[in-house]
Computed example of a mutant assay.
Amino acid sequence: MITFTTTTTNCPRPLYEFWMLPPGTTNWILGQGYSTNPSWRWNSTGAPPGDYQFSAWVQDAYSGSAISTGLGTYDGFLGVADTISAAPCTAPAVTASPASPTTSGTPVAITASSTCAHANAAYEFWMRAAGTSTWQLVQPYSSNATYNWNSTGALAGTEYFGVWVRDASSDGVNRSSMGRYDAVGSIPYSIVTASCASVSATAAPTSVVRGSGTHVTITGAASGCTSANPRYEFWMRAASQNAWQLVQGYTTSATYDWNSTGAAAGTIYFGVWVKDASSPTSTLDANASTTVTVS
């Protein structure tokens, strides 16, 4: 729908009439006869594309009308032009920030961009959650081209976001069971479970002399983590022992400094546990071990 509104001055009792000249013709069409209504709403549905001319006439209710034409009489008029496009809007390009994938709980901005015949296009946002086949409306038509999604609670999998766009002068040239639109675009977005794929463990030095009090650095190196700054935990099994003991709880430090003072001769085992900073697990994502020989 396109609304044309006119105003006039120095006319105590104005009456308004609206005319239209479609493209490719010289015959004007009466859109709305003389009345006190200064607006005419034209339904452009089905109108062929092209340049249209519109004219608003005005005359005073008691006027003898100053000007007479083959179409009628008026005291004054104003003409405007408008263009009807076959495709009022191009298919919107849809982007996400941050880029996919991410972990549940991360705020995600879905933004659309479309070229339309007129300024101030309207955008509508839809979402299909992972594991479902039903689309749900998450943000109705507005001039806001961005939808901010709170992914808290989202299950791991692929979400789909659909964006509908309508030109400011359009009611939507396409129709579905969910509504009307001029063009659509979509983007998949993946939610992953935060984790680390693996970790390696090294010792430096790998052997010490008993009673020397040498310090040994145990280092973990995580790989394949979803997030930055993975957490490391260090365990130790003394020579000739079966039980592991926690020597350094989870921190962002990838090293543990072991003081070998008092260590019995034999092989000491060190275990490194790692988990992603956003991992839902309370234990570990991956682990590795290394040994130090005390002789």
Rank of each mutant, 00 (worst) to 15 (best):
M1K: 15
T3D: 05
F4P: 00
T6W: 07
T8Q: 07
T8Y: 08
T9G: 02
T9C: 00
N10D: 13
P12W: 09
P12N: 08
P14Y: 08
L15Q: 14
Y16Q: 10
W19S: 03
I29S: 10
I29T: 15
G31K: 13
G33Y: 08
Y34E: 07
Y34P: 09
Y34M: 06
P38Y: 08
W40V: 04
R41H: 11
R41A: 13
N43E: 05
N43R: 07
G46S: 09
P48Y: 10
D51C: 09
D51H: 10
Y52E: 04
Q53K: 15
Q53R: 14
V58G: 12
G64Y: 11
I67Q: 09
G70W: 02
L71S: 14
G79M: 12
V80W: 13
T83N: 09
T83E: 02
I84R: 15
C89V: 06
A91T: 14
P92L: 02
A93G: 14
V94W: 10
A96T: 15
S100Y: 10
T102S: 12
T102A: 08
S104L: 05
S104W: 10
S104P: 08
S104T: 14
P107Y: 12
P107L: 04
A109G: 00
I110N: 01
A112N: 01
N120K: 12
A122Q: 15
F125E: 08
A129C: 00
S133D: 07
T134A: 13
T134P: 01
W135V: 03
W135S: 05
L137R: 13
V138A: 06
Q139V: 05
P140V: 02
T146K: 04
W149V: 05
W149H: 10
T152I: 03
L155I: 02
L155W: 01
A156E: 13
G157L: 03
T158H: 09
E159A: 13
E159C: 05
Y160Q: 13
F161R: 05
W164N: 11
W164K: 07
D167M: 06
A168L: 06
G172A: 11
G172Q: 04
N174Y: 08
R175Y: 08
M178G: 03
R180H: 11
D182H: 05
A183F: 07
V184H: 04
I187P: 04
Y189M: 04
Y189V: 00
I191N: 06
T193S: 03
C196I: 00
C196L: 03
A197Q: 15
S198T: 11
S200H: 01
A203E: 00
T206G: 09
S207Q: 13
V209Y: 14
R210P: 00
G211Y: 11
S212H: 12
G213E: 11
G213Y: 12
V216M: 06
G220S: 07
G224L: 03
C225F: 02
A228Q: 11
W235N: 04
M236P: 02
R237A: 05
A239I: 03
Q241M: 10
A243I: 05
W244T: 00
Q245E: 12
T252I: 07
S253A: 15
A254G: 03
W258V: 00
N259I: 01
G266F: 01
T267C: 01
T267E: 09
F270K: 02
G271H: 02
G271Q: 08
D276T: 05
D276W: 03
A277H: 11
A277Q: 11
P280A: 09
T281Q: 01
S282T: 12
D285M: 10
T290Q: 10
T291S: 09
V294T: 00
S295M: 08
S295W: 09
